[in-house]
Each structure stands twice: as C-alpha cells, then as structure tokens.
C-alpha cells in the first residue's frame, strides 16, 4: 500500500533530515516507529502527508502504486491518508462539527460520490463520539482551541474515525495522555483496524503498543531505519534504551 524507497528529505532551509529511508506497509498492517528525539520520525509523518515545509530531495513515496511527490495534501487525504498531528494546530472560529462535515463532503466530492446528508453525518458523529467517549458539546467548539493535550489527541482520533482512512499515521498520539485516555484512543484505533486499515504509529513508549499490538517495529536513527523486527524490539528498547542498538 505505502512504499517508501531511498527517501531523502530536507527542510526549507536545506537541513537534511531523512537520509535514505525505506519502508513498505501492506494492507491491514500496523507498524510502529520508534527512535530518539530528532531522528526524523515526525518529518517522515509530515512528508507523507505533504507538509510544504519539507522537500523530497531524492527517493520516492508511492501510495497504492501512485507517486505522492506532486500531490497536494488534500489529494493525499482523499486517497485515504490520514495524519494525527503531534501538535494539532488551533483554528479559532471553525467548529469541529462544521470542520469535519466540510472535510467529509470534500472527500465525497473528490471521489465523485454524492455528499452525505446532515442526518447521515450526525449519525456518524454520534457513533464515533460514543466510541471515544466524547461529549457532543465538545464537537461544537472551535477546532482544538482551548483543548487540553488529551482532548486534542482525542479529537484527532475522532477525525480519523470520521474519515475512515486506509492508512493512518499517528504521530506521538500517546504523549500527554493519561492511562484512561490512552485506552480510549487505542479502542478507536482498534475499531478501525478491523476493516483492513493500516497504521504507522510513531511513539517513544511501549505503553501504547501494549494496547495496539504492532506487526512490525522499526527503529529510526539519524534519518534511517537502523533496525526492524517484531514487537519484542519495542520491549527491549523500553528496558534498555536506544544504546542497546
């Protein structure tokens, strides 16, 4: 589904971050990516989603066989890519409710499908809010404005469930969550996992992986994957730190 070949990425100011990264993700797989601060984890998430702050200097990313390089972020989104941001931006003046409606129907339009009716959307909202234990009043608030760290992450997962992506990238979604919130987030992810969706989970900690069992774990360091394997790697990292590698 997602293929990343020999990817090199720099920032706008020409600082090289990813230096020859390879990764392949198939349908239904869950990949965890771990690595020390500054190893390029968030850059990987951003470049796949199409953040204009980063540039591909060489290499290629394809999604379902199609190159992502020249696609706009919204085109990637309608193809079924979703990024749960590490730091979701606050947008005053747009309610989460209207925001998600707009996003959903833009996707329908891009796929040449007819827009959802208000009723259909409301049902979806109710269903997903239920899974994530979100109060409906919460959805009336402006996107991320005044949300606590945990609320922001929950709102990201809510959007993910609403948009039903094929591939979701969760960028440190677990940081700043207490154990109850973590379980709720995991529940949300697992509910989507059942229908063949794939995930990239970027994290520092084992604890989220206790609730979402990954198929593969990769360790990223200095812009490259230096180790890949099963979920035992994560446990070793938790115990011994990155020096172990």
């Amino acid at each position: 589904m997602l293929k990343i070949k020999n990817l090199h990425v720099s920032t706008e100011s020409n600082i090289s971050i990813l230096k020859g990264l390879n990764l392949e993700i198939n349908k239904g797989e869950v990949h965890a990516i771990m690595g020390p601060n500054g190893s390029g984890k968030s850059t990987l998430a951003s470049i796949v989603a199409g953040d204009p702050k980063y540039m591909i200097t060489s290499g290629e990313i394809t999604f379902n066989g199609k190159s992502l390089t020249d696609l706009e972020p919204e085109e990637r989104s309608s193809m079924g890519l979703f990024l749960s941001f590490q730091y979701p931006v606050e947008i005053p003046g747009i309610s989460l409710n209207n925001f998600i409606k707009t996003a959903l129907n833009q996707k329908q339009k891009a796929l040449n499908e007819k827009p959802f009716s208000a009723k259909e959307i409301l049902e979806k909202i109710k269903k997903n809010a239920e899974i994530l234990k979100i109060d409906l009043d919460f959805i009336k608030r402006s996107v991320n404005v005044g949300f606590s760290g945990g609320e922001k992450k929950r709102a990201e997962i809510f959007q993910m469930l609403m948009l039903q992506p094929q591939l979701s990238i969760l960028d440190e979604t677990d940081s700043g969550l207490d154990i109850d919130a973590l379980k709720i987030v995991a529940k949300g992810v697992n509910s989507l996992r059942n229908n063949n969706s794939s995930f990239i989970i970027i994290t520092h900690y084992q604890r989220l992986l206790d609730h979402i069992q990954p198929d593969f774990v990769h360790v990223l360091n200095e812009g490259k994957i230096i180790k890949s394997g099963g979920s035992d790697i994560a446990k070793m990292l938790e115990e011994k730190g990155y020096d172990w590698i």
Binding site: S77, A103, L163
Partner: peptide, 15 residues
Amino acid sequence: DEDMLFYLRSRGIKK
C-alpha cells in the same frame, strides 16, 4: 497561517 492551511488540507479540504 500556513500550519492551519496544511491541517485543513491534510483532512482533504481543497486549498
């Protein structure tokens, strides 16, 4: 704000 714009676009909303 470019970050806001990217956030919206990453959710599939056209520029």
